[in-house]
Every structure is written in structure tokens, then in C-alpha cells.
Simulated scan of single mutants.
Amino acid sequence: MELMDKLPIQYAVEVVHWNSFRPGAFREQFSIRHQDGTSFWLGAVLNGRKPEWGRVRIDFNPNKVAGHAVFVKLLSFLVLHTRPMHRTIKRYDLAVDIPVKRFDVFLVKDSRAYIERRHGQEWTQYLGAQSSHPGRVKLYNKTVEAKLDYPLTRLEITIDPTTSFDDLPWPAVYYLHTLQMNMDDFKATETERFILNAILQGCGSLNQLGRKTREKVQSLMTRYVSYIELSSGDYNKIMNQLYGYTRGTVVTTPTESDKPPAPPEPPVPDWVREIENEELSM
């Protein structure tokens, strides 16, 4: 608590504190907001039959706050005052940005619960439980969400870090190269595009099509369809970085916006400036 109380003085951050007495929640909760608008959350004292005073949880987006000095200070404090076997990663969100228009990217339904929401250019698809449970998948229009001036679609999946690469509940997500499709001489009709999407979504198979249509759809799949995949090498790199936060080995660079504003210089009387100028001219 002493450390949290000193943060607004030592750094140019806003610390908001509140209490929660709900069972399973953390009693002391803090939101730390930086000058650039980014923030992270910290909770201490887990509520239960007996409060667990030594339990602390931190929730953050490394792409946004890992370089801030106040975050580095708090993370270093937690690493220093805990045992290695007690530092765990509960879950994390893996995001993949696809530089393609949202309506050219598709999420294939599987055994998980499926929800879809559309409103104008906002089209979001979900797989899995309606919360941050592992296995939750979200595909949405990042251009609209972040008010960007270029096409961008984001795939997010919540992962349990104890999951091996082979057991990763990776969704089937693909996108169509529609710009290339429209520019090439190998044109596709609206009907053929509909059939292509239906096949990719698991509605029927190529064997149900006539020979000419089957050959055309097969050519479309080869030329204009790409799947979003994750290699085992990339997954291992992500895991190494992830557990670096529990070991305190992740190198971060504090940002200038964390520094408290410098106090204004006291005004200098004119007679003092005249004396200084005379001394410089001698």
C-alpha cells in the first residue's frame, strides 16, 4: 500500500482505488492510468472464507504498458517479493492482425458455441464461452474499433498457458484475396464465390459439384484463399516472452510520459539578468 500511495507522486499516473468484498474477487483493487491513456489493473487480498493476504493479481496489455516505468516498477516489486513457484500466468489473449477488410475474413464454426453480431461495418464473430475463459475466440473489424484509415481485421483467442501447441484450440480462419480475384483474368462469378465460401465453411464437399464447377472452385481455393496459422516456433517464442514476466527477464524501456512534469523555473528579476549579462560580456 505504501508503494501504491507513492506512485502518483513519483510518476505522472492516476491511481484509482476501490474495494470489493465479493467472494472470489480481490478486496483491494487498483487502476493505474498513464498520461497516454493506457492503463493496467492490480488486485490484492483474495476474498474467501479466510482472506488470502498474500495473493496479488495483475492484468495488463504488454503492447501498451510494458514499457512504462511505473509498470516495470510494480512488476519488479512483485517478482522480488514472491517465490518463483508461486508466480503463475492464469491466461492470456493472443492477437493476430490481418491487413484485410473484415468482410473478406471468415471464421469457421466448430463444436464451440457460436455468436455473431452485425451492425453496419461492425461484424464480430465469437467462438466459445461468453467471457475470458480459455478457448474464447473473437474476430472483429479493427478498422472500425480503432477508427483506422486502412483495412485491418483482428483475431483474438484466449489461451491457457499450460496448453501445449498440439492441444491449442486454434480456430479455422481464412481470408479471400478479393482484390487480386477482381484484377485477374481468372474471374469468379458471385455464384462461384458463394459455393467457395460454403465449401470452406464445411457446407458440402467438392465431390458434390459437377466436374467444371469443381475444377473452378478448386482453382479459386488454390489461388485466392489463405488460412491464418500459427507455427510451433512462433508459439514457443510467445511462451518464452510470456514467462519472462514471471522471471523478471523481459527487457522494457520506460517511456518519457511516465516522468512527472518538471516544476516551472522560478522567475528571475530583471536586475539579476542585467548583472549576468554584464558578467558574460566582460
Rank of each mutant, 00 (worst) to 15 (best):
residue 235 Y to C: 00
residue 250 V to T: 06
residue 250 V to E: 08
residue 228 I to N: 00
residue 251 V to C: 10
residue 220 L to D: 03
residue 247 R to D: 14
residue 210 G to F: 10
residue 261 P to M: 12
residue 229 E to G: 05
residue 222 T to H: 13
residue 267 P to Q: 12
residue 234 D to G: 09
residue 242 L to A: 03
residue 203 C to P: 00
residue 242 L to P: 05
residue 226 S to C: 13
residue 203 C to H: 15
residue 220 L to V: 13
residue 236 N to K: 11
residue 207 N to V: 08
residue 237 K to W: 00
residue 264 P to C: 01
residue 250 V to Y: 06
residue 232 S to K: 10
residue 216 K to I: 07
residue 252 T to M: 06
residue 262 A to E: 07
residue 234 D to H: 08
residue 229 E to D: 15
residue 199 I to W: 01
residue 229 E to F: 04
residue 198 A to W: 12
residue 262 A to F: 06
residue 243 Y to Q: 01
residue 211 R to E: 09
residue 246 T to D: 08
residue 267 P to N: 08
residue 268 V to G: 14
residue 224 Y to T: 01
residue 263 P to K: 11
residue 252 T to L: 02
residue 210 G to W: 08
residue 211 R to Y: 08
residue 233 G to L: 04
residue 265 E to G: 11
residue 245 Y to L: 03
residue 206 L to F: 07
residue 211 R to K: 13
residue 217 V to N: 12
residue 262 A to D: 04
residue 244 G to V: 12
residue 243 Y to F: 15
residue 261 P to G: 12
residue 238 I to W: 00
residue 210 G to V: 09
residue 232 S to P: 02
residue 248 G to E: 08
residue 209 L to H: 04
residue 219 S to A: 10
residue 225 V to H: 12
residue 252 T to P: 02
residue 245 Y to R: 02
residue 222 T to C: 04
residue 227 Y to W: 15
residue 233 G to K: 02
residue 232 S to Q: 11
